[in-house]
């Protein structure tokens, strides 16, 4: 077995890369939510002076990337790789932003799991000595996602209680080989799990088995249980998906309920009429970058497990009656180098 592999799905990073800087940009509704004060930029309106929603999302992506680079006192040409993606067809947001940024670029698609997918690969690139600086950026936008996956915005439809609300937001993380906490110490890569859920208004149920499977694999591979973490954070399971994940893991003998939060539940208040909670590539990016990392710096949390969760569907697969496969990738963030 490869030297630093632990079990079937996890690697331990021998020279753990650090998160050198970060930036978060969110839309108006997210700014009005309970975490509003933690984000770097809150937009006045979600169009941001652009002609289309897509252009606005692309600008959010670019600006978040630039902010993260500037905050670390670096230039775009210092960055070895840009990794990232978004929810739009052919990941146009990330591709078009990469055109402007001019950093060598790997475009990734893992639906809403793209954040930890990017950070997993970025951390491994640095650990292996292939890069000094890797920028990981993901974004999503309520209006671009709605028109691609569902109905026009002004269409009068009723959403069921399990429907999610796509987060308008972009988060950028600059990883480096410096010695400055927090560090990424472990990477657990998820498998695609499908329990046959076909309801596109129930993403939480589609993704919960994938989240539970990755958490279980991480515990088994590292030989540690929930007690080794101050917090376990999932990306966008929402209220219902969170409950399902707790139940699924209880069946496997792990109780994580006392230290388990979901970014989709944290970003909005229940009064904001978002039904099951937030979702999208931007959801875990802005909650992790804005809120959770701040709390880690303040010393509230020392070691956390972050999982972004993705529902791997398309409008074509849904119309053809296919079920919704889910995926979740986990990374351990630690204030110590381990």
């Amino acid at each position: 077995m490869a030297k630093y592999r632990l079990g079937g799905q996890t690697v331990r990073l021998e020279n753990p890369p650090c998160i050198l800087s970060r930036a978060t940009i969110v839309g108006k509704k997210e700014g009005e939510g309970p975490l509003g004060e933690y984000f770097d930029v809150v937009l006045e309106d979600d169009m941001w002076g652009e002609k289309t929603w897509e252009k606005a999302e692309c600008r959010m992506y670019q600006e978040a990337a630039r902010m993260a680079i500037i905050r670390a006192g670096k230039q775009p040409q210092d960055v070895n790789y840009l990794l990232g993606g978004d929810l739009l067809n052919q990941i146009i947001t990330a591709n078009f932003a990469a055109r402007t940024l001019g950093i060598p670029f790997f475009g990734l698609y893992g639906a809403c799991s793209t954040l930890t997918e990017s950070m997993s690969l970025g951390a491994m690139l640095i650990n292996a000595g292939y890069a000094d600086l890797v920028l990981c950026v993901t974004s999503s936008h309520f209006c671009t996602a709605e028109r691609q996956y569902r109905f026009p915005l002004e269409m009068g439809t009723q959403r069921p209680p399990t429907a999610h609300w796509t987060v308008t937001g972009a988060g950028a993380f600059l990883l480096s080989n410096d010695e400055k906490p927090p560090y990424i110490t472990h990477v657990t890569t998820g498998r695609v799990i499908d329990y046959g859920i076909t309801d596109t208004y129930n993403m939480g149920a589609a993704m919960a088995p994938a989240a539970a499977a990755t958490i279980k694999a991480h515990f088994e591979d590292t030989g540690q249980g929930p007690e080794a973490y101050d917090l376990i954070v999932t990306g966008d399971l929402g209220w219902f998906g969170r409950e399902l994940t707790i139940d699924l893991l209880k069946k496997e003998g792990y109780d994580i309920s006392d230290r388990f939060i979901d970014c989709g539940c944290e970003i909005y208040s229940r009064e904001q009429d978002v039904h099951a909670g937030g979702s999208g590539c931007g959801c875990s990016a802005v909650v992790f970058g804005g809120y959770i990392l701040r709390k880690m710096e303040e010393g509230v949390y020392k070691r956390i497990l972050l999982l972004s969760t993705g529902a791997l569907l398309s409008t074509t697969s849904t119309q053809q009656g296919e079920s919704i496969p889910g995926i979740a990738h986990a990374i351990t963030i630690d204030m110590d180098r381990g």
Partner: peptide
């Protein structure tokens, strides 16, 4: 799926 149906809001 049955479990989800039962528990779903």
């Amino acid at each position: 799926q049955e479990y989800v149906q039962r528990k779903m809001p």
